[in-house]
Write a protein that binds this DNA or RNA. Structure first.
Lengths: 250, 250
DNA sequence: ACAAATTTGATTATTTTTGATTAAAAATGA
DNA sequence: TCATTTTTAATCAAAAATAATCAAATTTGT
């Protein structure tokens, strides 16, 4: 019984029962508790489950019932997959920027229990993270009711005062020919500002947005460091992206 | 049964029933009352429920203006009266500061339809005014989950960039001898900053807070221009306040 | 086959969680 | 108001879980 096999069984059990105990897993896997603990530590580090004292739980069960409607239900599975990958890039102690947008907001469930600092202009994200381990800094400025986010000059200046380890962006289109594009100037200016003040810029982008061009083209590939997308993306296309200097996680 | 599982069950029960007792939770969770109390303390610290003597309540039942709050229905009426008077001071085109606090947030219902600009650090106010005629500017900075508001140095600097016609404050105590007092330094510093950058400073204060002194005394009467209180206030006391240069609306 | 690297398990501190006991505080009711 | 009851806070001790350390077993590369 090697790690890969144990990992499968652990995740399967957690998925079925919602929560498990170290003791039971040790018996199930015919191994020692210390090994189970080591496995659980690895898996929780990868964001595949939530470690509790004495066992582990399904990630989704740990979320607080602060329901602030996330409008978009399309491509949920892909977005969750992308966000789970994204969460693996985040270490304890990190300071990260989170853009507004439906994809990025799905990242919350995976980072709730990390001791990190999140700087964001998205109100749904603020609500999701309120009362969790995460320390939240809200970008100030004009409220954009339609997008439930903060925008405007003051917001840009607020961002400029901070420096983050990583920025997670969720924009509306990316194409080889024209770079990054957004649905509005407001979103474009926020994304640009976040990118400028982060060491590493990560784009969370499901495959449907690849080679799409939205209303406003506002930046080139240079702005990005990493692109995280889902498995349904065209592999040949991703190779071309990689040749442009982008690191791809898929 | 670990903390995460208990937390889930507690929040679920509170959500369903609106309020719960420590005893019942102890039995439900098959644990001791002291453990339940510790859990409730943690959860209320995170702003996920409201701790009562002997149990806990849903946050929304305590704070939300739409649903009635059992104990303070009478005080609610007084707060509404105060806010209705306050709204008469607001003209179309005004730029106003709104402090966080339960009294001030009741003002929202009276200003929803006005074409004004509101600058605030209170998240409940932001949600009330989102999508209304009012244009909202949210003060940025550190999120204080307990008070559902923004605080800190950056918030103070944000405020300093604006100039408002009027500031509406809701603080925890006012007394002839010691001036204004607040429940925390954070709230005090925000109130001070708002007052400094407004032409007119208006205190919304139900009669129960007159001649009360809260944790921190932070400013004198000079800071205020107008005090709006309810009819149950001591008239002689109000005369003394007036002699100190305060305009009283009652 | 052999040495190096990895994985696993046992032992031991250390930390976290829990519950019992006490004193203090708050609600209740006359 | 005051006394009674209930609830809570504080302190400590026990139990459980974990981390750390080291040694044995296994795998891997040459």
């Amino acid at each position: 019984m090697n790690y890969q096999l144990r990992k499968q069984l652990i995740l399967q059990t957690v998925e079925e029962k919602g929560s498990v105990e170290v003791k039971d897993l040790a018996e199930l896997l015919q191994t020692s508790e210390i090994t189970v603990r080591r496995d659980l530590a690895t898996l929780s580090e990868q964001g595949l489950l939530y470690r509790t004292h004495g066992g582990a739980m399904k990630m989704s069960l740990v979320q607080a019932p602060t329901s602030f409607a996330n409008k978009s239900t399309s491509r949920m599975a892909e977005k969750d997959y992308i966000c789970q990958k994204a969460s693996q890039l985040i270490q304890e102690g990190d300071v990260i920027f989170l853009d507004c947008g439906s994809t990025v907001s799905r990242l919350c469930q995976f980072i709730k229990h990390k001791r990190i600092k999140v700087i964001t202009n998205s109100l749904p994200i603020v609500y999701e993270l309120m009362g969790t381990e995460v320390s939240v800094n809200l970008i100030g400025g004009e409220l954009d009711a339609e997008r439930q986010a903060i925008h405007g000059t003051i917001a840009l200046e607020h961002i400029a005062r901070y420096q983050a380890n990583k920025a997670f962006l969720g924009i509306d289109g990316i194409s080889l020919a024209r770079g990054l594009s957004a649905a509005s100037e407001k979103e474009a200016s926020i994304a640009t500002a976040l990118a400028q003040h982060a060491q590493e810029v990560i784009l969370l982008c499901d495959a449907s947005k690849l080679e799409k061009e939205a209303y406003l083209q506002f930046a080139s590939f240079d702005m990005l460091d990493i692109l995280i997308t889902d498995a349904s993306a065209d592999k040949e296309l991703l190779v071309k992206y990689e040749q442009k200097g982008l690191k791809i996680i898929c």
